[in-house]
């Protein structure tokens, strides 16, 4: 089977999972809603009145004020994080680079926390998003400048840099918490756990605008990211303006991570697990990888969110905790495998 057919097939399969996850997520919860009511409500929204349309206003408002924004947020954040991971791995030349692991998410979190304390949240979601982006950008630049040598990044250097940046950002968040008033403090703590519950349409709109633009930009960069796998010098010999590609990619990673973290907190390992599994199935060519990662990341978070809502009756687990619970061991497995293959922590 040609890689292209595999890529399209996998993407369609994942899209099916997304649709299934959306329906499942829309009907599941404290208030049980039937799939036909969901379909009817959606059809009514586009102006088609059918017999399926829910008559109960509570059903209608539950769908439109609680579940739909939440589902969309999960989709968008998952897609943004997975694509950010794939782009990051390409420019670092290392499959272990991931926004959460190397501290970019923490940087964004520090930015967002600062925004909350400074009252930038009165500007609406946009203020938090801008601060999160700036934090993510600073962190990405820092990791990039510190950890690369000769166009590649050694695992050890990458992880040590990540430890340092994570430590610094966590200290920064602790300081921000310390100086914050009670209301801000509560907001930060809750948000830090990583949750897509209580997403507002205004937030979803911001994440959608930045996320969709970012994913499209990543797809446009895909071919050049392929060439980067040959090393920077060879990529340049093949006509790639490597300096510009690096800069654009770093801003892209920061944008996608920043906007994902801004409203949902740190949801780690999505950018590691999703591109890795997709690479194993369809190969490393970035066009297919980025498209499938976007869909796969969305599917993962919609399903993970469903799990967090249903695993413990009457309570919701933080989604960031769940992804780290799965992603942590997976990361360890990758490390172990890479170490065995290269005979050291190179």
């Amino acid at each position: 089977m040609s890689p292209r057919i595999r890529a399209v097939g996998l993407t369609l399969l994942l899209a099916g999972v997304v649709v299934g996850g959306i329906v499942l997520s829309a009907i599941t919860g404290q208030l049980a809603i039937t799939p036909t009511e969901v379909a009817g409500s959606l059809l009514r929204a586009v102006g088609l009145d059918t017999v399926w349309a829910p008559t109960d206003p509570i059903v209608e408002s539950t769908l439109w004020f609680v579940r739909f924004p939440r589902i969309l947020m999960g989709l968008l954040v998952g897609a943004a994080l997975a694509v950010a991971g794939a782009v990051m791995q390409a420019i670092f030349g290392n499959p272990l680079a991931e926004p959460g692991v190397v501290g970019v998410s923490s940087g964004a979190a520090l930015g967002a926390a600062t925004a909350i304390v400074l009252g930038a949240s009165v500007l609406g979601g946009a203020g938090i998003a801008v601060f999160a982006f700036l934090g993510a950008l600073l962190a990405t630049l820092l990791v990039y400048v510190v950890s690369r040598a000769g166009g590649r990044t050694e695992v050890v250097t990458l992880l040590l840099t990540g430890i340092a940046i994570n430590a610094f950002a966590q200290a920064g968040i602790a300081f921000v918490l310390f100086v914050a008033d009670t209301a801000s403090r509560e907001q930060i703590v809750f948000w830090q756990l990583g949750s897509i519950a209580g997403s507002l349409w205004s937030q979803v709109a911001i994440v959608a605008a930045v996320g969709v633009a970012g994913v499209i930009a990543a797809i446009l960069l895909a071919q050049r990211l392929d060439l980067l796998a040959l090393g920077e010098r060879n990529a340049r010999h093949l006509g790639v303006n490597v300096e510009r590609l690096r800069l654009v990619s770093i801003v892209l990673v920061a944008l996608l991570t920043g906007v994902a973290v801004a409203f949902t907190g740190i949801i780690a390992f999505v950018g590691l697990v999703v591109p890795h599994i997709i690479r194993m199935i369809i190969g490393p060519a970035h066009r297919g990888l980025i498209i499938a990662s976007a869909v796969g990341g969305g599917a993962l978070l919609v399903l993970a969110d469903l799990l967090t809502r249903t695993m413990v009756a009457g309570a919701e687990l933080p989604i960031g905790m769940l992804t780290s619970l799965i992603g942590g061991p997976f990361f360890f497995y990758l490390l172990w495998r890479q170490r065995r293959r290269s005979g050291g922590w190179a």
């Binding site: 390409a90 499959p95 590649r152 392929d226 796998a229 040959l230 090393g231 010999h237 006509g239 490597v242």
Partner: peptide, 29 residues
Amino acid sequence: ALELARLRSVLTQANAVSFPFRVIEIVQM
């Protein structure tokens, strides 16, 4: 970079590839 790439090609000594691309993909690059 692109103008130069149409005039001269370079085979370097180090030719490591970061991700497991297939040989045909590498040649097509």
